[in-house]
Amino acid sequence: MSQPIRAKNLSFSYSKDGKKIIDNINLQVNKGEILAVVGLSGSGKTTLCYCLSGIIPHLYNGELSGEVYINDQFIKEMNMPQIATKVGVVFQNPETQIFFPMVENELAFGPENLCIKREQIGKRIEEALSLLDMEDKRYDKTEHLSGGQKQLIALASVLTLKPEILIFDEVMAQIDQKGKQAIKDIIIQLKKEGKTVIMVEHNLDNIEIADRKLVLKNGGLKKFEGSLQ
């Protein structure tokens, strides 16, 4: 079975003599797998997401050692936009990922970068909005969205990229019951399409859909058996 994402002896700290947030992690994620990562606040889940999506080392500095491979390609040798054609990340903080004044512009931005045809982009926008029940917000101003609506738009704007690998960093935190179910359904659908999903979550009810659950503690990943500490 192919493994779209692999980490080998991965270690990272934000500064030279700083604490190792990630300490010698080895991880393989299979194609079509939903992997859940849990852990205490501050244990390094977001940092791990950054390492697996190339944001570390391409955009953040720090002490990195070990290797990450995307489809067997060494992540350090790819540039950030190249990685982004394969890996889509929805960050924990929706405010910082939205930069266009109108929702539709935001959703079109990704596929435009991938040189997708106009008609196709239109279809993708419609599809993403309807999956999240946000069609009526299509022409709204992004700055006027509520917290949860922003989160949903940030998610939708990664869905329109249709990447093979998706990383969701606590995306359900500010979402209502209906929205949470919609997101879970989307993740299950992505799995059916053979996509690989990594989800970071604090709410353990949300990870029932995962094929594998790992806990990040003291810089290492272990099988999750109910305790974070």
């Binding site: 205490l40 606040s41 924990q92 606590e170 935190a173 500010q174 604090h202 353990l204 974070l228 500490q229």
Partner: peptide
């Protein structure tokens, strides 16, 4: 939304 980002212990 005080519980955003908080783990079960916190």
């Amino acid at each position: 939304e005080p519980t955003t980002g908080l783990d079960i212990v916190r």
